[in-house]
Design a binder for these strands. Structure first.
Length: 587
RNA sequence: GCCCUCGUAGCUCAGGGGAUAGAGCAACCGCCUCCUAAGCGGUAGGUCGCAGGUUCGAAUCCUGCCGAGGGCGCCA
């Protein structure tokens, strides 16, 4: 196996057209060759239409000239013709398609390059709150962030995952105080019955503590003292706090394992971490004259954003009573990630309602001189998960939906469908497949629609397993694997002189376009681009599957088709992995 | 008041300067002696929110309007 990049045919054709443009009109050298996949040929170039005016000619004439130049070129085109108002339709020889397939099969990375090499990317995602259940609100950031981490990493970025845990704040004062006053309470994971989690217990205890805080003035006072003790580093208080953090992380870990998310405890860099940096951040901003006093608080007035009163909107750097909120920690994160982590790409995967907040954080970071031209900072916003009523997803009683419950529900429904479709499965195989299909269905449903749009969480639809769902992709993969198993998983061998059937041709062209889909994910930060590609690929495979028998074909066609199966299976498996979805061998 | 996002088939969504606007679901009609029918083929369904503008060409870019959602000082 090699790991040299295999250039996609689209790029090779584009290079040819670029050469043709430079040859025919040297003054237009460097212009976009406007090469796309085409319904009328393998590829088409629309360059003649785009450039005719600059070339002082008519589109059909320019197209004709480009066609002639392409015919002389030693590039990949075998058949070039002008069509319509000036489209240049380009067809590539079958042999070249086979060569691409063979080269990708021989390559450990399917011929993908590492265009993001040299980028150091921080991705901030998931960010659950300590001592609180993970709920629907954490689903999208966790799934989307993780997929982006995988894709960007594969493309050569050095990815630094940051799980910005909500592990600091006044709420811990009352929780710790309450636990201290009630040593009989059990909440550690090893004290609880199986299936119960420490965060679930802590979440309940926090509510109780909160009620006590509101009812009992003396308890409230002791809780406030406890906040002070926590913030000033009192050893006993800190020890208890660390215990709560670590127990909570165990519960998060269960969810991450189940979701197949890459986050590890090493990626946890919560709010508390920034504590020791806040005074430096504030000093720097104050000395630079960016942060100023206002109504007793320290704020940064935006030069871009105004509030309801028409005055500049502020970031709250230090509250009137001296405390710090999320504005301050977020200013600290961006400084830390640029100065200490030395990242040149910073992604914050949070819901779209925080857009204005990040706009102001980035503005402040630019004014402070932290965020400079070579560094990209981006809020990666996503829409709300809605319930069947079109309102933010809640339980019937109006509470938040626990993430674990939601996953249980999806998996148990998946199990019903899987066992109906395949009643012969052994119990443990059924469990495993139901888990993979159910979790995959949830993740795919989340990743496969436009990130910024709200979407309705509809388990029935996700788990119906028809159409553009995760299971369709998994199913396509198992059908291919079944063929390959029956063939004995042979070493690929391709005879490139064999003529391609239309379905084979469409499949081969699609397989060749994988890298384009991945680059689009990198530039748009939309996993949907990868989902769409994989769905198209699975459909192209299914068409091929219907039209081109593999095992019963005569050699050398059989081997060639097996090679297409192998590359499709590997590409599907690989793409699903970048989405964080497993590709079972059987279903 | 200002700002952001969204408006495409009955429903859920792709397409974000190029040829007849595409899928899935739901509906209807077909297809398992054949590599997994969790599949495939077909029929039907659209003034791409509205109105201007830019362009050889606009669902796509610009402006305005309408509608939905969200945000804008001490919650993240």
């Amino acid at each position: 196996m090699t790991n040299h990049e295999v250039l996609p045919l689209l790029g090779q054709v584009a290079d040819s057209v670029s050469r043709a443009i430079a040859h025919v009109h040297p003054e237009l050298a460097g212009a976009d060759p406007v090469v796309r996949r085409s319904e009328h040929a393998d590829f088409q170039s629309n360059a003649a239409l785009a450039l005719a005016k600059r070339a002082r000619t008519k589109p059909p004439e320019l197209a004709q000239a480009l066609t002639a130049a392409l015919a002389d070129d030693r590039g990949p085109a075998t058949h070039v013709e002008v069509s319509g108002p000036g489209f240049v339709n380009i067809t590539v020889p079958d042999q070249l398609l086979w060569n691409q397939v063979a080269a990708r099969l021989a390559n450990s990375r399917l011929g993908m390059g590492t265009p993001n090499e040299g980028q150091r990317t921080v991705i901030d995602y998931s960010a659950p709150n300590i001592a609180k259940e993970m709920h629907v609100g954490h689903l999208r950031t966790t799934i989307i962030g993780d997929s982006l981490a995988r894709v960007l990493g594969f493309l050569g970025s050095e990815v630094i995952r940051q799980n910005h845990l909500g592990d600091w704040g006044t709420q811990f004062g009352m929780l710790i105080q309450y636990l201290d006053e009630h040593p009989e309470l059990t909440w550690h994971h090893d004290e609880l019955e199986r299936g119960a989690s420490a965060v679930s217990a802590l979440d309940e205890l926090y509510k109780t503590a909160r009620a006590a805080f509101d009812d009992d003035l003396e308890f409230a006072d002791r809780s406030r003292d406890r906040v002070v003790a926590l913030q000033s580093g009192d050893p006993d208080t800190i020890a208890r706090w660390k215990e709560i953090v670590s127990e909570s992380e165990k519960a998060f870990r269960d969810i991450y394992d189940r979701l197949g998310v890459l986050l590890t405890p090493e990626d946890s860099v919560g709010e508390s971490f920034y504590n020791h940096l806040l005074t430096d951040v504030i000093t720097e901003l104050t000395e630079a004259g960016i942060a100023v006093e206002s109504e007793g608080a320290l704020v940064i007035f935006s030069e871009e954003v105004t509030g309801p009163d028409g005055n500049p909107a502020p970031l709250m750097v230090r509250k009137r009573e001296g405390g710090y909120g999320y504005d301050t920690t977020d200013l600290a994160t961006i400084r830390y990630r640029i100065h200490d982590l030395k990242a040149n790409r910073l992604l914050y995967v949070t819901d779209s309602r925080q857009a204005l907040h990040f706009q102001m954080i980035f503005e402040a970071a630019r004014r402070a001189g932290w965020l400079t031209d070579g560094i990209e900072a981006a809020h990666v916003p996503y829409g709300t998960v809605l319930g069947p009523d079109g309102r933010p997803f809640k339980t019937r009683s109006g509470g938040t939906v626990r993430l674990m419950d939601l996953l249980d529900d999806a998996v148990s429904r998946a199990r019903a469908v899987v066992s109906e479709k395949n009643p012969d499965l052994a119990a443990d195989a059924l469990d495993q497949i139901a888990e993979q299909a159910g979790i995959g269905a949830v993740k795919y449903a989340d990743l496969s629609s436009s990130r910024v749009k709200d979407y309705v969480f509809d388990v029935e639809r996700m788990v119906s397993f028809n159409g553009n769902t995760g299971v369709y992709l998994q199913y396509a993969h198992t059908r291919i694997r079944s063929i390959l198993r029956k063939a004995g998983d042979p070493e690929a061998s391709i005879d490139p002189t064999i003529e391609l059937q239309p379905a084979e041709r469409a499949l081969a062209l699609e397989l060749d376009a994988y890298s384009t889909a991945l680059s689009e994910v990198s530039s748009t930060l939309e996993p949907l681009k990868l989902c769409g590609y994989l769905y198209d690929l699975a459909r192209d495979f299914t068409t091929f599957y219907e039209a081109c028998p593999v095992l019963s074909a005569d050699e050398p066609v059989r081997s060639n088709r097996l090679a297409l199966c192998q590359l499709t299976a590997r590409t599907l498996q690989h793409g699903l992995d970048l989405l964080g979805i497993s590709a079972p061998e059987r279903m």
